[in-house]
Design a protein around this nucleic acid. Structure first.
Lengths: 220, 220
DNA sequence: ACATTTCTCTAGTGGTCGCTACAAAAATGA
DNA sequence: TCATTTTTGTAGCGACCACTAGAGAAATGT
């Protein structure tokens, strides 16, 4: 779309002249005056807090502290910057679900840990509350952006479902378990917790929520 | 804000000259060329589908089939039209929760019915999926609008909590019940179901979700 | 030194936003 | 008939949107 998107590997090593593998030659032209990684982090926080639409390019240039041409040259247009933001958000903040699924011995333990860590993550005062993937592109006038995040949400539920089905296969869960419904319930729970975090719920309140989701409605 | 908002009672009886109470005199000037109620319904559907920000005034004038001056004269500015839309949405589409709380004999029955009816309502093909109050003002650059819907969401949870506390008081629920957490769990569940409806879940899938929320995670 | 490459800064582009001034149109009261 | 009241259509307001042309600045290669 944009003609001047730089697809080069970003020179993470910077100027400290470390012994790590460096690009063979120094780049030719005027060097970039800002650190791409920290600028991207600022963009993550801005999109996380205000969403795709409500974060204008001039908002971005202000918080990233760069001019508009620098932004377009380094990240492409607003939409491709957002895509990179979402990808990087997944790496830096959204990986707890995948980790729980990979590391816990059972689906039940994975989901319990996932919900517990969501309570912590979604209320961390170090960054905006809730989940960027849930909230940053609802009611978006760019349908591809909305669809992209929808795809990620549904992929997460599919991953939970696979983990549950694996436990059903090994007998760790009863054979009549409705894996799809159980996975969707977990996804809905996480999304509801994210909404609650946005609406002011505390970590303790979200943890109580998670406990109820894993336990029982009290019998009368 | 807008100087020309008409606060008159809308002449719902119209031209059928019924025997009901009518305004004492006919209005003086040129009569309105559109039906205010049906125009409002169109606005509800537009805001419901696309949200506050992504629904532009020119979108509204197109779907309501009126000119911009007519819109501003009949409904005030965009924000006050949205407020009226939210109020009317609550009356026409969002009252199932209050009805369940008022009509069911126990909090548990009320919540069970609430979730069941949410599954139906949120996937009704006759209108946009999910809940307007949940989705129409997330990531909104007008903070008052966002805050207004947040207030409604939290008020709904508070109402559920009151109903639960009433059951605890009468002994219909155990005295150690955490009413706040249970209410918040229900709210999160409803919000998660709304998100799921937006993401393509069917009525049956949401009903399975509701059943899980009211029942149990299967024991291994 | 000088050409080349790349980035940064200024200053915009056309387009859409929410909103409104103005005058013609359509009703009523006299 | 004619003045009054209100709505309607046209046409356009300033502000902001995402985005970029073009010139100068800062690095490298020769």
């Amino acid at each position: 779309m944009h003609p001047m998107v730089s697809n080069k590997v970003s020179n993470k090593e910077g100027e400290e002249a470390g012994a790590k593998a460096r690009p063979a030659t120094k780049p030719r032209g005027r060097p970039r005056s800002f650190d791409r990684e920290t600028a991207l982090e600022k963009a993550i926080l801005a999109f996380w807090e205000h969403g795709y639409e409500a974060t204008s390019v001039s908002d971005l240039t202000r918080v990233m502290d760069i001019g508009a041409p620098s932004l377009y040259s380094a990240f492409g247009d607003k939409q491709s910057l957002f895509e990179e933001v979402v990808r990087e958000y997944g790496v830096r903040y959204g990986s707890f679900a995948d980790r729980a699924l990979a590391e816990e011995p059972t689906a039940r333990a994975a989901v319990a840990r996932m919900l517990r860590e969501a309570a912590t993550e979604y209320t961390d005062p170090a960054h905006p509350h809730g989940c960027l993937v849930v909230h940053a592109a609802t009611n978006c006038s760019t349908p591809e952006v909305e669809e992209s995040l929808r795809g990620r949400r549904n992929a997460n539920i599919a991953a939970i479902r696979s983990r549950i089905e694996a436990d059903v296969a090994t007998g760790a869960l009863p054979p009549d378990t409705d894996a799809a419904a159980l996975a969707r319930h977990t996804g809905a729970m996480i999304q509801g917790m994210s909404q609650q975090a946005r609406d002011g719920a505390s970590r303790e309140e979200l943890e109580a929520l998670a406990e109820i989701a894993m336990a029982n409605w009290p019998r009368t």
